[in-house]
Computed example of a mutant assay.
Amino acid sequence: MVSATALPPYAVRLARPGEEDEICRVCRAGFTSSSTGLLPPDLVERQAQRYYDPARVRREITTAGADPAWQGYVVAITDDGRVLGAAGGGVLDRSRGQLYVIYLEAGLRGRGIGTALLDAVTEQQRQVGATEQWVSVTEGNSLGLPFYRARGFDVRDRVPYVDPDDLSVAGHSLRMGRAI
Score class of each variant (00 low, 15 high):
residue 124 Q to H: 15
residue 122 T to E: 13
residue 152 G to E: 02
residue 68 P to Y: 10
residue 122 T to M: 10
residue 141 N to G: 02
residue 92 L to K: 11
residue 73 Y to T: 01
residue 74 V to C: 09
residue 178 R to A: 03
residue 93 D to G: 13
residue 86 A to Y: 04
residue 83 V to Q: 09
residue 92 L to E: 08
residue 37 G to M: 14
residue 66 A to M: 06
residue 3 S to L: 05
residue 63 T to H: 12
residue 74 V to E: 04
residue 50 R to K: 13
residue 110 G to A: 10
residue 17 P to R: 15
residue 4 A to R: 15
residue 59 R to F: 07
residue 62 T to A: 14
residue 46 R to E: 03
residue 139 E to T: 07
residue 126 R to D: 03
residue 166 D to K: 09
residue 60 E to D: 01
residue 86 A to P: 11
residue 114 G to F: 11
residue 80 D to Y: 02
residue 85 G to N: 09
residue 55 A to Q: 08
residue 118 L to Q: 11
residue 21 D to M: 07
residue 29 A to S: 13
residue 67 D to T: 01
residue 30 G to Y: 00
residue 121 V to Q: 10
residue 90 G to K: 13
residue 52 Y to W: 14
residue 21 D to H: 13
residue 20 E to Y: 08
residue 50 R to P: 00
residue 22 E to D: 05
residue 148 Y to V: 00
residue 98 Q to R: 11
residue 150 A to D: 08
residue 106 A to S: 15
residue 39 L to Y: 09
residue 29 A to Q: 15
residue 125 Q to V: 04
residue 62 T to F: 08
residue 166 D to V: 05
residue 64 A to F: 07
residue 105 E to D: 12
residue 5 T to C: 01
residue 19 E to N: 04
residue 44 V to K: 04
residue 62 T to G: 08
residue 118 L to H: 09
residue 132 E to M: 06
residue 13 R to T: 10
residue 91 V to R: 15
residue 91 V to Y: 08
residue 103 Y to D: 03
residue 49 Q to V: 09
